[in-house]
Design a binder for these strands. Structure first.
Lengths: 193, 193
DNA sequence: TTTTTTGTGTTAGTCAATAACATGTTACTG
DNA sequence: CAGTAACATGTTATTGACTAACACAAAAAA
C-alpha cells in the first residue's frame, strides 16, 4: 500500500507547519508573521504552505473538534430535548479538551479572539459547527420544527458557545470553561423563556 | 465656518465611491472587482479610496443602521422585557428599510451573504450591533443580570437577526422580512423556554 | 499676502495568494 | 530492472490589497 506512507508524511508536514505557525503567532503576533517566515521555520517553501492551508488564517482556524462534538451529541439519551443534548455535548466535549490541554486551548483561543482577521474567519469556519447543531435539532425527532426555527436555535447555541469562550479568555481562564458554557445556556433559557 | 462645505464634499465623494463599488460588485462580483477599478469609476485615485474606506470590504459592510436601531429600542415602553424591546425594534426598524428600499436591501444582503470574504466581515462589523443590544439588556433595568448573561442574550438576538436575513435571501425575498424576524425570535422562545 | 490646513495624487513598496513550469521521489507495470 | 505514471515539492513570476513618503493644489486663517 502506498497511501499509508504518504498520508503519514503529509500529516507530519502539516503538523510541523501548524506548530511553526502557532509558535510564531504567539511570539510576534499574527499580522507581524509572514507566511514565508512560517514556511522557513517549518522547512518548506511558501508554496507548500498554501498547499496544506488555503489561507494564512486556516492554520489557526482548523480545529478538528466537530467529529467529537457530533459523537457526543449522538451519545446523549434520545428523549432529551435537542437543545439540552447540544448544551451537554458542548460542555462535556469542551471539558475534555479543557482538562487535557487547558493552557494551549487558552492561548489559541485568545489569539483567535484578539486578532481581527482571525475573529472574522472564526464565524466562517464555524458554519460547519452550526450545520452540525442543525442536524441535531432537525434530525429524527424534529416535531414540526420549521427549517428557520432549527437554524435560529442552532445559531443561538453557537452564540452561547462563543460567548462562553470569549468570557473565559477575558477572565484569563480564571473561571472553569465548562461552568461558563452552562451559564451561557442558562442565560438564554432565562432571557427567552 | 469651513467644516460645512468640506463635510458636504467629503460625504458626496464617499457616497460616489460607495455607489460605484456597489454597482461593480453587483455587475461582476466582489472578487472580480479591483479597488483600482472602483476608484476609476468614482473618479478618484486608489489611495483616496483607502482614505474613505479602510478595506475593500468596508464599502459594503458599513450600513448606518445602528443609530436608528438604538433610537427604536429607546422608544419602546420601559416596562417591556428587554428581549422583547430588541425584538420589536429590530422588526420595525428593518420594516422601515424594507418598505422604502426592498430591492436594494435584498441585493445588498444577498451580496453580503454569498461572498465568503464579506460574510466573514459581517460578524466583525456587527460587533457594534451586539454592544448596542448589550446596552439595551444591561442598562437601567438589568435586574441582577450577570455580564455573561447579558452578552449571551445579545449574541442570541444577533443570531436571530442574521438567521432571518439569511432565510429571506435564500427564499429570494418571497416572505416578508419582518415576519421572518418574528419567526426567528419565536423559535428561540420555543426552543429555550 | 503669507502661512497653514486639508484633500488628493504619484510612486514605490510589502505581502498574501495564484498560476505555470521544472524537478525529484515513490509506486506500479511489463 | 527499466520505464512510466502519480505525487509532493520547489522556483519564478504575477496579480491585487494595502501602506508609507513625498509632492502639489486649493481653501482658510493669520
Amino acid at each position: 500500500m502506498s497511501g499509508d506512507w504518504r498520508a503519514d508524511k503529509r500529516a507530519r508536514t502539516r503538523a510541523r507547519i501548524q506548530e511553526a505557525a502557532l509558535e510564531l503567532f504567539l511570539e510576534q503576533g499574527f499580522d507581524a508573521t509572514t507566511v514565508a517566515r512560517i514556511a522557513e521555520r517549518a522547512g518548506v517553501s511558501h508554496m507548500t504552505f498554501f498547499r496544506y492551508f488555503p489561507t494564512k488564517e486556516d492554520v489557526v482556524l482548523q480545529d478538528g473538534y466537530d467529529p467529537m462534538l457530533e459523537e457526543m451529541i449522538r451519545s446523549r439519551p434520545a428523549g432529551e430535548p435537542p437543545v439540552t443534548r447540544i448544551r451537554t455535548a458542548v460542555r462535556d466535549g469542551l471539558a475534555l479538551v479543557y482538562d487535557a490541554d487547558r493552557d494551549a486551548l487558552l492561548a489559541r483561543t485568545r489569539l483567535l479572539l484578539s486578532t481581527p482577521g482571525l475573529r472574522a474567519g472564526l464565524w466562517e469556519n464555524q458554519e460547519g459547527t452550526q450545520r452540525l447543531f442543525e442536524r441535531a435539532l432537525g434530525g429524527p425527532d424534529a416535531d414540526g420544527r420549521s427549517p428557520l426555527r432549527v437554524r435560529a436555535a442552532a445559531a443561538a447555541c453557537l452564540a452561547a458557545l462563543v460567548t462562553a469562550l470569549t468570557a473565559w479568555v477575558e477572565g484569563d481562564g480564571a473561571e472553569p470553561l465548562p461552568d461558563l458554557v452552562d451559564e451561557a445556556f442558562d442565560a438564554l433559557r432565562a432571557e427567552f423563556g
